[in-house]
Amino acid sequence: MAETANTQALFDTARTLNAEWRLDTDMNGWQLADIRGQLAEFLDSVDVVYLTIDLDVLPAAQMPAVSAPAGYGVDIAVVEALAGRIAKSGKLAGADLVEFNPAFDIDSHGAKAAARLAWSLSRHLRR
């Protein structure tokens, strides 16, 4: 979640629901070991996962095709690595990519990024 793109009420609700999250500023490639550890704990605690990748989590330079481009965002390499780990867990029941808006795409840049994520997920599911 981005502190700059979400309301205090959303954070308060997440706390009330005991939801877990990481800020986009805590989702860098160099933090991937810690992130994978948190994800492994989560995957161990559930039977099934439905994954939604909100494409506006990606930095605007990687995903211009959204109505609310991220000023900071989470690099596609990090998102791809984590989505792949979820797919490999055997607990992935379904997944979707949301918020894509072709009216805002630049030279199919966003479409290619979304296609890359979809391809990556399906590749991990086949293994």
Rank of each mutant, 00 (worst) to 15 (best):
N101C: 15
D75G: 09
H124V: 03
D47P: 01
G73D: 05
A40I: 02
D75R: 11
A9G: 03
G37E: 14
A68I: 13
W30A: 11
K88A: 15
A70E: 09
D54Q: 00
G84V: 12
K88T: 09
T7V: 05
V66Y: 00
Y72P: 00
K88M: 08
R126L: 15
S45E: 05
D12R: 09
G71V: 06
H124C: 15
A115Q: 15
A93T: 06
M1G: 06
V57R: 00
D47C: 01
D47N: 10
V57M: 04
A93L: 12
S122T: 11
L125K: 02
A2I: 00
A87D: 05
L51R: 04
T25M: 05
F100Y: 15
H109N: 12
V49I: 13
Y72K: 07
N18A: 13
L125R: 08
G73M: 04
N6L: 13
S67V: 12
A33V: 09
G84K: 10
D24C: 09
E41G: 12
F100I: 00
T16D: 13
G71Y: 05
W119P: 01
A61R: 05
N28C: 08
S89A: 07
A65N: 08
T52E: 07
H109P: 00
R85C: 02
T16S: 14
T52V: 07
R126T: 13
R116I: 00
Q8F: 09
A19K: 07
L117W: 01
L43V: 07
N18G: 11
L117T: 05
D96M: 03
R85I: 13
E80K: 15
A19P: 07
L10Q: 10
P69F: 06
V57L: 09
G110P: 03
Q31W: 03
G110Q: 01
S122I: 12
V98E: 05
A65L: 06
A19V: 11
R126M: 14
E41C: 09
L17Y: 12
S122H: 14
W119C: 13
M27E: 08
A2R: 07
A95V: 15
L125F: 03
A93P: 03
L43P: 06
R85D: 15
A68M: 11
D12E: 15
L55Q: 02
F11H: 09
L23Y: 12
R127W: 10
A9D: 08
F11Y: 13
A60V: 03
L82R: 05
T52A: 11
G94D: 04
L39P: 10
D34N: 14
R22I: 07
A70N: 08
S67A: 14
R123Q: 11
Y72R: 07
D75C: 07
